[in-house]
Design a binder for these strands. Sequence first.
RNA 1: GCUCCCGUAGCCUAGCCUGGUUUGAGCGUCCGGCUGAUAACCGGAAGGUCACCGGUUCAAAUCCGGUCGGGAGCACCA
Length: 978
Amino acid sequence: MIKQVRPNYDAPIMEKEILEFWDSNGIYEKTVAHRENGEDFYFLDGPPYTTGSVHLGTALNKTIKDVLIRYWRMRGRNVRDQPGFDMHGLPIEVQVEKKIGVRSKQQIEEYGIGRFVETCSAFAKGLMNDMTLQFKRLGVWMDWNNPYRTLDPQFIEAAWWTLSEAYRNGLLVRDNRVLTWCHRCETALAEAEIEYWDEDDPSVMVEFPVVGGDRSLLIWTTTPWTLPSNMAVAAHPEFSYALAAMETSGGAKKVIVLESALAEVAKAGGCEKWEILDRMTGADLEGMEYEPPFAVPGLEKTQWLHKVVLADYVEEGNTGLVHTAPGFGPDDFETGKKYGLEPFCPVGEDGRFTDGFPMMEGKKVRGSNEALLEDLDSRGLLFSSARLRHRYGHCWRCKSPIIFRNTDQWFVKVTDIKGRMLDEIDRVKWVPDWAGSSRERNWVEGARDWCITRQRYWGIPLPVWECGCGETRVVGSFEELSNGDGYTEGMDPHRPWIDGVTFRCECGGTMIRVGDVLDVWFDSGVAGWAGLGWPSGKDGLERWWPARFIVEAHDQTRGWFYSQLAAGVISFDRAPYDEVMMHGWILDNKGQKMSKSRGNVVDPMDLAKDVGADSMRFCLLKANAPWEDTAFQKEMPRNARKVLNTYWNVVNFASTYMNIDGYDPSAHTMESMSVDFRDEDLWMVSRTEAMKRDVENALESRELHRACRSLENYILEDLSRWYVRLVRDRTWAEGGDVVADKNASYFTLHYAIMNAALALAPFCPFISEEVYGHMGGTLESIHMEDWPGHDPGLINVGLEESMAAVQEIVEIVAAERQKMGSKLRWPLKAIYVVGPEGGKVRTFDRVLAQQANVKSIEYVDAAPSPRKDLVGTNYASGAVFIDFEVTPDILAESYAREIIRRIQQMRKDMSLNVEDFINCEIDAEGEVVELCAQWVEHISGEVRALNLVFCDSPGGDEVRSWEIMDGEVVIGVSKAAM
RNA sequence: GCUCCCGUAGCCUAGCCUGGUUUGAGCGUCCGGCUGAUAACCGGAAGGUCACCGGUUCAAAUCCGGUCGGGAGCACCA
């Protein structure tokens, strides 16, 4: 049976009720169970980092997932929809540090690693719960009671297993390299963890006096603090260098620099003239020995120490001679290796000088710049000193400037499996195609070995144990771990507890775990099997793996798309997904990234509170192609709400009258109604089938914006603005002879509303549920329904063309009326449709007459002869002539309709029910009364008046004076006693 | 320097793959209308060098090449 919906679309309240309905009736669980025999479909959720609050981008992300999952369920699939959360890592650690008031690793260790890790864990879980509530409010249906969490022991075991596979295949190695380092977090950082912005730094040229000569090599640097670690000077073998004599502010100098840089160098040194004394190539300089800028006591003298070496990365800028500190520069490190220079790195993990450089021991490196420069200056070695603004890297979490440092780290040898990864990119389906063929491919081609170790606490512990004898063991399961000393059943595998587990080495020594934890980017890379309980159980993997579909924002090209690809190739020699969809970001209205510091953040929860989650979802989806970034405009949610509100109004209209007439949708079928359909009903059915076809095609091609636009167009144009307008009269017709015709319109209206609800269900799960429940849906929830496939046999192109022509003529008539000052309420005498297209229009004769409000329509081959009151207009496939002559009959009908309109307004103002009867008394000028005489019966019928009389002083419950066509009319209305 | 995406009205965009009426919508603005869906709704008007230049073609917003601008990523940043 049909239940009337509440008159106003109050989405926030309605949605809360639906959430409550879902919750207390276990609708989600029942829907999942409903499909348990369907085809298995492994959807894999990319785990959001537990920040505690869902931003618009995350909302879009989960909305896309929810839409597709609901759609697949409607298509009968048994979708695995476990959500995930990324819960380890530096971001949580940094927040916890702030919370408990510590600022360094040393303080954390004093606080106790165990306490610290437990705090991180509890903190992350709390944030996860906050986010879960927000996702639920947005209508996202996932298995919220059973998320995979990267902090779970089972998840950790899966990561260990993957690393042990990597080790077994020679893809996990320890290496000594120069890497980006955060001195505050005291850990290595990956390139992805570095944020760049401008920083003011020294820009200095320093003289390195050549041993046994009167000249100096001139180098340029922006990091004076690396000078104590200088071990060589690099020159390009083919560049041309010059020995030049200069008269500088610091006195007469002889320097060796790149010849082409002489002018710049001289300018920096405050000298206008110079003389070139000699020329040489870089190769000629090789082996030239110089005095290091700082005396470093412990530095072992080797063959190439403090000599000019050759390197072809040297560029033709600055002095052309590059200060080389193998402990602090990736290139320097490589050069050092080539020349047998052991990296000298007198800087600790905390970014302070060690006793390796006693002069500055204990001082922060960047803070030592000035003192070092002063020292150089006092010795006459500072050739020039300036400041430079340049892009500099910073730690993504604590914003400290990063430094380069030479350390031991563990690497996944991505460079060894690059070929396989690229093959897999080709095999996987990417949406859009270029996300894979260009973007992901481009990233993988340029990828370097992946440094997966971090010197921190809150993360998956590196499962590597080492013995002093050089023996290494990589643990791949808890079962293997249980063989260790110090293992206890059910122990938390996090630090510090895991650090207490040791293994007996074959040499008799003790194997101790390497203290590092994993880069959090590695965590989520193994989600595809970690969530399935692998490796401790294999059923899940065999049943579900690999993931059929994943979808994330484009930043995951180098994040999750990549980490999964690498982990998948390592573990299973394939990409762990079949289809990857990429989506864009939600930016602010100017196209800038939303961020707290910019103060331009829009909170999805506010939108849900304001216009409802359905409107929020709909506006995000319809705004743009999913893979494009969207500049969020504040009117977007309001516009989306307008679409849903219009739909709601249609349902309100339909449910009101169907309810009054006791219409039972289950008593009719398309077949049984077929004899009663009017052509406009068949037109509406045709439009409905086309809409379903379009929405389905768009869902299959992941063009969700097109699906939304089809729905919007259907609801606004076809259903609301046209069909409802057409069927109004039929809806309130009364009497036995109109029942069949009315039922045909009800059936069609109901069919349209229900199909719209079904097609809308994945996108706007709340309003569709509410409508379904009120319009006689037979299942407990619309989300258990099957997808409403379309019937091509019901699509009638000819009928649609006819209707389009009629709509066009109605628009023309309306436009011409406006020009002529003729209200739609006043009937027109006639219109003439000229041209061969008349036949098309004729199908909808009645519709045209009614909607344009014309008394007569004539189809003619040629334009009628011109006369007064006849106006002609051309349209797409013909012409229309409108006869604006006002006859007494037309004037009478116009008056009648004006009066009807006023009485209806009064009924409404009096809050009468649609079914109530009234009595009317009307006072008007004699001429008007005369004209209306023949219309009294019609007026009475339209306004449900039992008695309608003209008199001099009208009375009633409500009396009002109106101005109609320059004359005064007084109308009195009373509710009639029944 | 390299790669990718984007550029259509004041704003946000459709159309581009697959060339073909006068480039469509929405928002905003102005004017009007309608109203037994009504704290709604509808119509009309103004507003476009389809970023620019060149090419292919009978025909280019659409295909090709280049330029400029915006964004993202890579490399570099001693």
